[in-house]
Simulated scan of single mutants.
Amino acid sequence: MAAALNACRVATCLALALLAGCMPAAPVRIGLLADFSGRNARFNVDGRNGALLAAERLNAGGGIGGRPVELLVRDSGATPATEAAAVRALRDAGVALVIGPFSSPVAARMLPLFDAAGVLLLCPTSTDAALRERDDQLLLLNRSTRASASDYAGMLHARGHRRLALATDMRNASNNGGWRDAFVQAFTALGGHIVADTEFGVAADPTAYAAVRTLLAAGPDGLVFVANGVDAARLAQQAAKLHAKLPMVAPDWAEDRSLLEAGGSAVEGLVLASAARLDDEGAAYRGFHQAYVARFGTEPNYRSIAAYDAMTVVARALAQARPGESARNAVLRQGPYQGLQQSIAFDRFGDAARQAYFRVVQGGRFEPLP
Rank of each mutant, 00 (worst) to 15 (best):
M1F: 09
M1K: 11
A2N: 04
A3C: 00
A4I: 07
N6C: 04
A15V: 01
G21V: 01
C22S: 14
A25G: 08
A26T: 07
A26E: 10
I30M: 09
G31Q: 09
F36S: 07
F36H: 09
G38R: 02
R39Y: 03
A41H: 14
R42D: 02
F43S: 14
V45N: 02
G47C: 05
R48D: 01
A51Q: 07
L52G: 03
G61W: 13
G61L: 12
G61P: 04
G63I: 02
G66T: 08
L72A: 04
S76F: 04
T79S: 14
A81W: 06
A81Q: 14
A81N: 09
A84D: 04
A84S: 13
A86I: 01
V87R: 12
D92M: 01
P101T: 03
P101E: 00
S103V: 03
A108Y: 02
L111H: 00
L113K: 05
L113H: 06
D115P: 05
G118N: 05
L121A: 10
L121Q: 14
L122Y: 13
C123T: 06
C123Y: 01
T127Q: 13
R132Q: 07
R134S: 06
D136V: 10
L138E: 09
L141H: 03
A147P: 00
A147H: 11
A149L: 02
Y152S: 06
A153C: 02
G154D: 11
R159T: 08
H161T: 06
T168H: 07
T168Y: 10
M170A: 02
R171C: 04
A173H: 14
N176C: 04
W179C: 05
D181W: 01
A182S: 14
F183I: 07
A186I: 07
A186Q: 08
L190Y: 10
G191L: 11
D197W: 00
T207A: 12
A210G: 06
V212H: 10
V224Y: 14
V224D: 04
F225W: 12
N228V: 02
V230K: 05
A232M: 13
A233R: 11
A240W: 05
H243D: 12
P247N: 10
M248K: 15
P251C: 10
D256Q: 11
D256A: 15
S258R: 15
E261A: 12
G263F: 07
G269N: 07
V271S: 08
L278E: 04
E281T: 15
G282F: 13
R286A: 15
F288D: 07
F288C: 06
A294W: 05
F296G: 06
G297Y: 05
P300M: 06
S304A: 15
Y308A: 14
D309N: 15
V313H: 13
A315P: 12
L318D: 02
A319N: 00
R322C: 01
E325G: 09
R328I: 03
R328S: 04
N329L: 11
L340N: 11
L340M: 12
Q341K: 09
F349A: 12
F349I: 09
G350N: 03
D351Q: 14
R354L: 15
Q355N: 11
Y357K: 07
